[in-house]
Amino acid sequence: MGPTYPARVTEEPLSGGHNAHEVVRIGGTVHRRGDGNTFAVRVLRHLEAVGYPYAPRHLGVDEQGRDMLTYIPGVTTDHPGQRAVGAYALGGRMLRDLHDATAGHALAAGRDCVLHGDPGPFNTIFRAGLPVAFIDWDSCRPGDRLDDLGYLAWTWCVQSQGNVPIDDQARHLRELRDGYGDVGADTLIRAILRRQTELAEVEAANAADPRHGAERRRHAEWAVQWATGDRELFQRHEDVFLAALG
């Protein structure tokens, strides 16, 4: 018999999260070439140690220096029609459990807790319309939990595109807030508006920065339109959202 060779490894490119890094699936693992964010690795290891179920597990580094993570089957979503009854309350609970799991820990560095940093539906895996895990932890950091909650509430519930009725958006916001718990209506409204404004300002600066490539500047221009469009809709119907929150 001739020599035997190891089976060729098949790498399946993955997309769906808001990141600019190489991400591939190899069997039951995800390999991603990140930005050397060792803080994110420490956070994922802590979450595994405390039994937080809504994040991938960090499995080490492969021979190419890429982080290896558990593969979580499912899809991301970009419209309420792709989400099941109970999805918003569960999303709020997932974020609250993350914040509670890191509050008071050294990783929080004296702040409220560790934030995911970008917990939009584009960075959430859904199965049968229900969220099962947050992915893309590159933006995680110590911070104020309302920054995370305001961003989650905005990106999951407020949508100027897609012909989503305002009453439905307000109901989704109430369900998400109730899933998270212990946040007043005015506080949440202000948090959403603050995150929309902050993102629009940051991305406007990126769009005007000649150090960025053309693709990055185009993305920044799109992000400004997204944030300002959603903010205008939210402000126009703020009374509806406030009434829904009670």
Rank of each mutant, 00 (worst) to 15 (best):
M94C: 13
G65K: 06
W226M: 06
D112W: 03
A103T: 14
D100A: 14
D147M: 06
G110R: 06
A106C: 04
G34N: 07
A109G: 03
R217K: 10
L188Y: 06
R96G: 05
E215W: 07
C113W: 00
R141T: 12
W137G: 02
W156N: 10
D230S: 00
C140S: 12
I125S: 00
Y54D: 13
A207M: 07
T77V: 15
Y71P: 02
A101W: 05
G150R: 04
D178W: 01
D78I: 00
A200K: 04
D168M: 11
A170P: 02
D97P: 02
H212Y: 15
V85F: 11
R211E: 14
V41F: 04
D118A: 03
G60Q: 01
A220K: 05
A87F: 04
D67G: 00
H21V: 12
I166Q: 00
D209F: 10
A207Y: 02
S160C: 11
G162M: 05
R93Q: 13
P3D: 15
L69D: 02
R194G: 05
R96L: 09
G120S: 15
L115D: 00
G36Q: 11
H105K: 11
V24M: 11
A191T: 05
W222F: 14
W222C: 03
R8F: 04
A205N: 05
G16M: 06
D148P: 12
H79S: 07
H237Y: 12
G184I: 10
G27A: 02
D35E: 13
M68L: 10
A133F: 09
D239T: 13
G110D: 08
Y5R: 14
E48N: 06
L47C: 03
G91M: 15
G181L: 06
Q169I: 04
W222M: 13
